Simulated assay, not measured.
Amino acid sequence: MKKNVLSFGTPKELEANRIAEIQSISYLERLERLIAIIEVSYMLKTAKVIQSKKR
């Protein structure tokens, strides 16, 4: 996987770049990314909130 680079541009340019990137990867890579997003989402949903102690 190539290194991510921050890109600046208009929203249309950024969206076009993102669409081109997604179309260039294989079905399996797309599925892996989706599973990773689902896992992170589930972890955030079920994580316990750590409250800071105020003294």
Rank of each mutant, 00 (worst) to 15 (best):
K45Y: 13
A47D: 13
R30L: 14
Q23A: 13
V40P: 00
G9D: 06
E13C: 00
G9N: 08
K2A: 11
A47C: 10
A20N: 02
I22Q: 08
E39S: 06
E29Y: 01
I19Q: 10
T46V: 09
M1A: 10
K12A: 14
L14R: 15
Y42A: 12
A16F: 04
T46R: 07
N4Y: 06
K53I: 08
Y42F: 08
F8T: 08
E39C: 05
K2G: 05
V40W: 01
F8P: 00
A36E: 15
L44N: 15
S52D: 14
L31V: 11
L34D: 08
L6D: 10
E21F: 15
K3T: 12
R30M: 12
R30I: 05
P11C: 00
K48G: 06
P11Y: 04
K45Q: 11
L44Q: 13
F8Y: 13
E15I: 03
S7V: 14
V49R: 13
S7N: 08
N17W: 02
R33P: 00
S41V: 01
E21I: 00
R33N: 05
N17S: 07
I50Y: 11
E15K: 07
I35F: 03
R55L: 08
R30P: 02
L6M: 11
N17L: 15
N4Q: 09
I38A: 14
Y27E: 11
V49N: 08
A36Q: 15
R30F: 03
T10Y: 03
V49F: 08
L6A: 12
K3D: 10
I25T: 09
T10K: 12
I22E: 13
S7L: 10
I37T: 09
I50M: 08
E15G: 02
I50L: 12
S41Q: 04
S41H: 09
E32Y: 04
N4G: 03
I50D: 12
I25D: 02
I22G: 00
S41N: 12
I25N: 03
S26P: 01
E21V: 00
M43L: 10
E21D: 14
I22V: 08
A36K: 13
K53Y: 09
L14T: 04
A20M: 01
S26H: 01
S26K: 04
K53N: 09
K12R: 13
A20I: 00
I35N: 05
K45H: 13
N17K: 15
A47K: 14
E21G: 01
L44I: 03
I50F: 09
S7P: 00
K54M: 05
K54W: 03
N17F: 01
F8S: 09
L34V: 05
L14Q: 09
I35R: 05
A47I: 04
E39V: 06
I19A: 06
R18L: 13
A20S: 06
L34S: 10
S52C: 02
K3F: 02
Y27S: 02
I38L: 11
S24W: 00
P11W: 01
L31M: 13
L31H: 07
A16E: 15
Y27H: 04
F8A: 06
E21K: 07
M43F: 06
L44V: 01
Y27N: 03
E39R: 14
K48M: 02
L34Q: 11
Q51W: 04
L6E: 11
S24R: 11
